[in-house]
């Protein structure tokens, strides 16, 4: 795996996404999702909202990096809060 040039932070990052996907799969098996309409302008499933959360998180961080700089803790906090709002009411 050396050719993949792993670093500690990227390992944690991808592991978190992997674990989140496993949890989503188990959640889906236990309680299948239903299409629903929240504050988003489209009907979404739980997986859709998770995907939107990940994409939003990426762009929140990109915006932060482009405008403010490399200290992204606040951006991460913002992304997590937004993801929670999306999953709950999206």
């Amino acid at each position: 795996m050396a050719w993949m040039a792993w670093t500690g932070p990227t390992l944690v990052f991808f592991s978190s996404i992997g674990i989140a996907l496993v949890i989503m799969t188990l959640w889906e098996i236990r309680s299948p999702t239903r299409l629903r309409r929240g504050f988003l302008p489209i009907s979404t499933t739980r997986g859709d909202r998770f995907f939107i959360s990940l994409l939003s998180a990426a762009f929140i961080h990109l915006l932060w990096l482009g405008i403010i700089g490399q200290d992204v803790w606040l951006a991460s906090l913002l992304a997590i809060t937004w993801a929670w709002i999306l999953m709950r009411w999206g």
Binding site: M4, A5, T7, P9, T10, F14
Partner: peptide
Amino acid sequence: LMTVVNYSVQ
């Protein structure tokens, strides 16, 4: 893609 992300922080 994961490899590219790994390179992007080094």
